[in-house]
Amino acid sequence: MNHRLVLEMMTAERAVRRWIDARSGDSGIGAAGAGVLFHLAGHDNALVGDVSAALCASPSGISGLVSRLEKGGFLAKTPDAADARAVRLSLTPLGREAVGVARTVVTELNAELSDGFTGAELAVVARWLGHITQRLS
Rank of each mutant, 00 (worst) to 15 (best):
K71M: 12
D44Q: 06
L37N: 04
L37P: 06
A82Q: 10
L113F: 08
D83P: 11
D44Y: 00
A31P: 11
V66A: 03
V87C: 04
A81T: 13
H39L: 09
R103H: 07
A46R: 00
S58W: 00
S67E: 10
S114D: 09
V105R: 14
L40F: 01
I62E: 11
A120N: 07
A54K: 01
A102T: 06
K77V: 00
L89T: 00
V51Q: 02
V99Q: 02
T118R: 13
S90V: 05
V106C: 08
P79V: 00
L40Q: 03
A76D: 08
A31Y: 15
A34S: 15
D80C: 07
G64W: 04
S67I: 13
A76R: 13
A126W: 09
G72R: 14
A82K: 10
V101C: 13
N45D: 15
G35S: 04
G49M: 05
D26L: 04
D83C: 07
K71V: 15
G73C: 03
K77P: 03
S114C: 09
L55T: 01
L109Q: 06
K71L: 14
L75D: 01
K77L: 05
G33L: 07
A126Q: 12
G61C: 07
A86I: 00
L113V: 12
L55F: 05
G33A: 07
R96S: 11
S60Y: 10
